[in-house]
Design a protein around this nucleic acid. Structure first.
Lengths: 354, 354
DNA sequence: TTGTACGCGTTATCAA
DNA sequence: TTGATAACGCGTACAA
């Protein structure tokens, strides 16, 4: 049991109380300095590319660092600089469809640089949210992104010691910085596309009326209809649930009462899938007889539909990237206020190709 | 522009060079100590519930901390303790279906306690993976979880300064600790369920043959068929793609050649959805005439199917939790080795209810 | 060009 | 019971 390995300074071996893993101490800057035969300060300057160091010395230090596979301790750096280089991302919809692209966008916008994302799932529970936020603040995150589960306003966190950006679900305080998808614009875009395809007998099968998203999309669609001088088939949008079942049932009812319908704008891709099924079973051809549009552009549903489904894409990744950008700006001292709306995008497939 | 706000110690105001946000310095332990009229050491003890402090003093300190809404600097703590209380989670499939539940399980297992998750998306790129790992190591994560995009073995990261656990995609080094889903067992479970439902003319429509998962599931199914003394309808499993289209086409072919088939085990829920469509259009009743099973238990596909789809659930959340647990053990000095397999679970719905 | 010394915010150890 | 002090690992004035 004599310590004849790693011959250098065995007397430190017993100093650390609680060596969880492998008992191998991580190498520090002073290890590098010692091996290179210089002071810690010089080693630091050499490694950080400071100018005041002789080329030969720098080479020596770099070699030593390489040999010891030195990696500077970010915690120590952060402690010194006052910024941790991390942001907290608290999501309320990790299992769901909406937070993931947002998260990807944010991770994307940060990832390349020197910022890492600490992820927490609060699952719609404000107690848990508070808990996570305290933990993140304790870790001295430089900022927070709060991702909601649905686009309805949520209570503000109030004054926080770091900048906060709300994504998908806006804060109810207009002083906060929020980013949301443009549901009104999405609905409008849907109708405009159908009109451009030459449709005039348009119906809307929306989702759960308790969601602001459902109503907003209908509002936008109605605006576009008005501008085109068209009446909604059936007189009003149909509200129900975000399911295929609802889409099927509603479509059947619609066909029974208004067999001359030539386009259906759906509140989600799931609803649209139900519509497509009902139409096929009634013998209608899509898009020849009836055009169908979804919303969300959920790839697995839209691409695999028969025919593949034209859908409104909410640009969630862009929303995430933008949230990250806004947070970044706020961290630099230029906070934005109010609600910023990210425009939708048309994902064109065959279900409307006129 | 006189500083007559926050009256306390304005002379420090100009000390910090780079006040990104609000110019408000975060309160430190020494602020608390000063306000409470005690030393830093005493304040620390009081806040951490150490015994050697008078009750009255503790109250005083607690009050001061409360008043200043003090939150201890985790970075300083970590620097001292040598553990950051964070783990890095590198995923290769953030947009996909499999990493999210795994991630949730891991977040769940850690989240309640004192560990936070740093998330990185490497997108299947080993360069990016290496980059992220270096960044995480620089942040002194206490461990790493590597989540693959599919269950085929992947190259080991080799010796790392912290414990590593591989989830979903195992490492090719048996000395590493990996957790995977039981694809063989899942296939077996599928056939056993169909046999228990009284089916004897079973066919298999699998996915992309280049995936180990596709082949493994078939192997397990074949074992169960052998044990039941049954022959596979068509003599062999059909391989194709992970799409509804493939499921539809394959099912049609199957019905043409083997109209007496009474059960189909599918390689995924998407494939199963295609099967169901083809069966319905051929006039077959599910499950009366033909039972159909999926794999993955992808809620949005399985629950909304007609009829709702029985599926094999891979227990990915459990896999994530287990990965977190194994990582935790390794961090405590008890690393596990080899590949651990998480059993599947039957998600029973109407498409097989005999 | 190099080295010394200080501070970042905590906790633990000792002495008072 | 309390307080001064030494770490933790690094960057950076300042002195040599």
């Amino acid at each position: 049991m004599n310590e004849d390995v790693e011959g250098d300074r065995p007397q430190r071996a017993a100093k650390r109380p609680d060596e969880g893993f492998q008992g191998r101490r991580t190498t520090t800057l002073s290890d590098v300095a010692r091996l290179a035969g210089v002071s810690i300060a010089t080693a630091s300057k050499a490694l950080n590319g400071r100018a005041q160091v002789r080329a030969e010395t720098r080479t020596k230090v770099l070699a030593a660092a390489e040999q010891l596979s030195f990696s500077p301790n970010g915690l120590a750096r952060s402690l010194l600089s006052g910024r941790s280089g991390t942001v907290g991302l608290v999501t309320h919809d990790l299992e769901g469809r909406f937070s993931i692209p947002t998260l990807m966008g944010a991770e994307d916008a940060f990832g390349s640089g020197k910022v890492s994302v600490l992820l927490c799932d609060a699952r719609g529970d404000s107690i848990r949210e508070q808990h996570h936020i305290q933990a993140l603040l304790g870790r001295r995150v430089d900022g927070l992104i709060i991702v909601g589960a649905r686009p309805d306003p949520r209570p503000s966190l109030g004054n926080m010691p770091v900048p906060v950006v709300y994504a998908y679900a806006p804060s109810d305080d207009p002083q906060d910085c929020s980013l949301v998808t443009d549901n009104v614009g999405g609905g409008r875009m849907g109708v405009e596309h159908l009109v451009a395809c030459g449709r005039t007998r348009i119906a809307i099968i929306s989702g759960d009326a308790s969601y602001g998203a459902a109503k907003d999309r209908v509002i936008g669609a109605q605006q576009a209809l008005d501008e085109a001088g068209l009446e909604l088939v059936g007189g009003q949008a149909l509200f129900g649930a975000w399911t295929e079942d609802w889409g099927r049932g509603a479509m059947r009812g619609l066909l029974a009462k208004h067999p001359d319908v030539d386009a259906v704008l759906c509140g989600s891709d799931q609803i649209a899938r139900g519509c497509l099924d009902a139409l096929r079973e009634s013998g209608r051809e899509v898009p020849q007889d009836v055009a169908v549009m979804g919303h969300d552009n959920w790839e697995v549903l839209a691409s695999n539909a028969r025919p593949p489904l034209t859908s409104i894409d909410m640009n969630l990744e862009e929303l995430g990237r933008r949230a990250a950008a806004r947070l970044f700006e706020a961290m630099e001292g230029n906070p934005a206020h109010g609600i910023e709306t990210i425009p939708c995008r048309l994902a064109l497939r065959s279900s409307t190709a006129s």
